Computed example of a mutant assay.
Amino acid sequence: MTQYMLSVHSVEGEARAPMTDEEMRQSYQRIGILETEMKSAGAWAFSGRLHEADTATVVRVSGGEVLTTDGPFAESKEHLGGFYIIEAEDLDAALAWASKVTAAVGAPIEVRPFMDMSGT
């Protein structure tokens, strides 16, 4: 089986009305049901939700010196907000899970396979 990352992206400055407590409860319930389904099917490996992009710290080497800077490295309006690592037979199966994730979280989902490094 191949592992895929289903990444959830948020768009900086995108106008979204804050969720009510009931909407938040329903959202967590939908996500919980989906994660239970993934686990039962043997597809779920790991997931995580990230804080906003402005909480990021970038570490890099420049001129032999380690530097840290605040904020995301990429100058983009879209940022990684969370992810699922799943196992799926093929891309079609991963896309089927992604369609369920986008319905549950209401955000675009990028699907990318992990490279198979077992032969190196």
Rank of each mutant, 00 (worst) to 15 (best):
S27C: 08
H9R: 12
E14I: 04
M38A: 08
A88Y: 07
G106P: 00
E35N: 15
E89H: 06
V61T: 12
E22R: 07
A94L: 03
G63K: 05
H79L: 13
R16P: 05
M5L: 15
M38Q: 02
E75C: 06
E75F: 07
L34Q: 03
A17M: 09
T57L: 07
E23K: 08
G71M: 01
Q26A: 13
V61N: 08
F83L: 03
A96V: 04
K39E: 14
E89T: 11
A104E: 02
H51S: 14
G106F: 00
Y28E: 12
L91P: 00
Y28P: 00
F73I: 04
A41Y: 00
A93L: 04
A93C: 08
A56D: 13
G64V: 09
A43D: 05
Y4S: 02
V111M: 00
T69V: 13
W44V: 00
S47V: 03
D70Y: 00
K39W: 09
E37H: 00
V111N: 00
V58D: 09
R30D: 10
E12A: 15
V58Y: 05
G82D: 01
E35R: 10
Y28C: 11
A104T: 02
I31S: 09
L50V: 06
A103K: 15
H79G: 04
P72V: 02
E110H: 10
W97Q: 05
H79C: 07
A74R: 12
I85H: 05
Q26S: 11
M19A: 10
L80I: 06
A94W: 06
T36I: 09
G42E: 10
R25K: 14
T2K: 14
M38H: 01
A98M: 02
S62D: 11
I31D: 07
K77Y: 04
S47C: 07
D70Q: 07
G13R: 10
T102I: 10
V11T: 15
M38G: 01
G64P: 06
G119L: 13
G32V: 03
H51F: 14
R16M: 14
D21A: 15
